[in-house]
Structures are given as structure tokens and as C-alpha cells.
């Protein structure tokens, strides 16, 4: 809890990461507009564009997640405290999750405004559920990968290069789950199969990250 408070405070003070993520995602929507040369999109294409944009925007946050800890001695200070080391994983994943939620609060309406053909209104609840599950996946994998990458040379390369393949199953599931929600005459509920895959993915990697994270902090 303490670490999470500090992280959110740090982001409030510096105001770097989240605005960059938001700006990045909006620019990406514009790029997709020109790249696809379409005024509006729907269905599977919309699901894919939204998911891919959020995924890449999340990578920006992942790259920054541990930089302050590494460069300003936060790791050492944390390790010196009589605190369970898993607290760092939970705090960082929560911080990243919070960043992603803020990002989506801005980026999803912007997506609806700029690119999406059908209205966002009816499928909103279903979309929130799908994105929340996707955010868990991004937060867990992002934290794990970021913790690995931050102690390597060329860390801004290592993070995405490992993180993106790991996230492909989550990407598939999110895009597929979002597709019928964003279709022209779509249903209001996401397909259960893909929600289940996403939930399974979240569960497996959350447990795995919890099991291996301690080893990334030791020296």
C-alpha cells in the first residue's frame, strides 16, 4: 500500500507517464485512420485497433515503471525495509493498472469519437469488463517484464521484445472478445469463451509472477 501511494504520488508530481500514454494512443488512432484510409471501423477491425493501440501505449508505461527505483536507489531502500518483497510486485502492478484505467477513460471515448462506427453506449458495460481483464494481464506481465528489463543494458528494448510475445494470447482474447461488442448490430455481452481465456491467462500469470518475482529483486 505504501509503495503504491508513493508511486501514484510520484506520477502526480512528475506527470510524465500517463499523459504520454494518452497522447500516444490518440496519435495512434489518427495514424490508423490514415493507414487504413477509413473514416469509421467496426467489429473485428475495431476490436483489433483498440487492443493493439492500448497494448503499445501500455508498453510506454512498462518502460518507465521501475526506472525511478533503479536510478534513484528505490530498490535498495525498499530492500532495506522489513517488508515482504512481494509487496513491490503488488504495488507496481496496481500502479500500472491504475495508469491503464486512466488511459482508457480518455482513450476509449476518443476512439469512439474518432474511429468507431457504431455507438459506444450499448456495449459499454461489456467493454469495461473485457478491458479490466485485459488490464490485469497487461499490469501483471508488464510489471514482471519491466522488473527483468530494468536491470539490463538497453532496457527499453528488452522490455517490449519480451513482453509483446508473452502478451499475444491476451491480445488475441481481448480483440476477439471486444469484436462483437463493437460490431454494427453487436451483442451487449462479450463472448464467454474469450473472457474465460483472458481470465485464465490473468490467473496463471498472476500466480507465476508472484512465485518468481522475489528472485528479480535479490542480488
Amino acid at each position: 500500500m505504501t509503495v503504491l501511494r508513493k508511486d501514484l504520488l510520484l506520477e502526480l508530481r512528475t506527470f510524465e507517464t500517463v499523459p504520454a500514454m494518452i497522447l500516444f494512443s490518440i496519435v495512434t488512432f489518427v495514424i490508423f485512420h490514415f493507414g487504413l484510409n477509413q473514416a469509421t471501423i467496426d467489429g473485428q477491425l475495431a476490436g483489433g485497433v483498440l487492443t493493439v493501440t492500448l497494448l503499445f501505449a501500455a508498453m510506454l508505461g512498462v518502460n518507465r515503471l521501475f526506472v525511478a527505483e533503479r536510478e534513484q536507489g528505490g530498490f535498495d531502500a525498499f530492500l532495506l525495509a522489513p517488508v515482504d518483497r512481494s509487496a513491490m510486485l503488488i504495488a507496481k502492478a496496481s500502479a500500472l493498472f491504475a495508469f491503464l484505467v486512466v488511459l482508457e477513460v480518455v482513450a476509449v471515448p476518443a476512439f469512439g469519437l474518432l474511429l468507431l462506427g457504431p455507438s459506444l453506449g450499448p456495449p459499454l458495460l461489456g467493454l469495461i469488463a473485457v478491458l479490466a481483464l485485459a488490464d490485469v494481464a497487461l499490469a501483471v506481465i508488464g510489471t514482471l517484464v519491466s522488473a527483468i528489463a530494468v536491470n539490463t543494458r538497453a532496457r527499453d528494448l528488452v522490455g517490449p521484445v519480451i513482453g509483446l510475445p508473452l502478451l499475444i494470447p491476451a491480445l488475441i482474447a481481448t480483440a476477439r472478445a471486444a469484436a462483437p461488442l463493437l460490431a454494427v448490430h453487436g451483442s451487449g455481452a462479450p463472448p464467454g469463451k474469450w473472457v474465460a481465456v483472458l481470465a485464465l491467462y490473468d490467473l496463471v500469470f498472476a500466480l507465476l509472477a508472484y512465485a518468481v518475482f522475489d528472485f528479480l529483486l535479490e542480488d
Partner: peptide
């Protein structure tokens, strides 16, 4: 860990937080 204090080469403080916020963070830890 609870019984030792380290004054290292680096200050182990976050540059973008105030001294008060830094110390309160460590105090909570």
C-alpha cells in the same frame, strides 16, 4: 533489516518527491 540503517553513496531518495514525502514513505515502510 529492521535493526540496521544504511547511509549509502546514493541518498536513496526520490528526486521528484519532497524531503517530507520521501521520509514519510520510508517511515511507513
Amino acid at each position: 533489516r529492521a535493526k540496521l540503517g544504511l547511509l549509502a553513496h546514493e541518498p536513496l531518495l526520490y528526486r521528484d518527491l519532497s524531503g517530507w514525502e520521501n521520509l514519510v514513505y520510508h517511515a511507513r515502510l
